[in-house]
Amino acid sequence: MTASPARLTRQDVEHVAKLARLALSDAEIDEFTGQLAGILEHAALVSALDTSDVAPTSHPLPLVNVFRADIARPGADRDEVLANAPAAESGRFRVPRILGEAP
């Protein structure tokens, strides 16, 4: 048995949006706070079940690592891949600054 966490707050939603890299508007944060709290309350039904002797299932199949022979074979064509990029330069993806002042 796991205790149900407290009701979701607006601060929780702001924190989760940051973790999920979503620049939500104030209106979206308000909307999601109510909706997510409602969904999580419904989900509290499962939190209340006694599962102390139950192992978790993460996948329907018993997964094993799959190996293949270590032989080189052609991969995706670089130009074809870069043609999909919003910005590319000298055979690479071009992105905005990644170092500098912390956001």
Binding site: P5, L36, L40, L49, P56, S58
Partner: peptide, 25 residues
Amino acid sequence: MLGTYALSAGYYDAYYGQAQRVRTL
């Protein structure tokens, strides 16, 4: 948002972990 919350520190076991045990049931 829902998934990130269910996986986040402090809530993982109550939500995602518990859901996986229900999957076993």
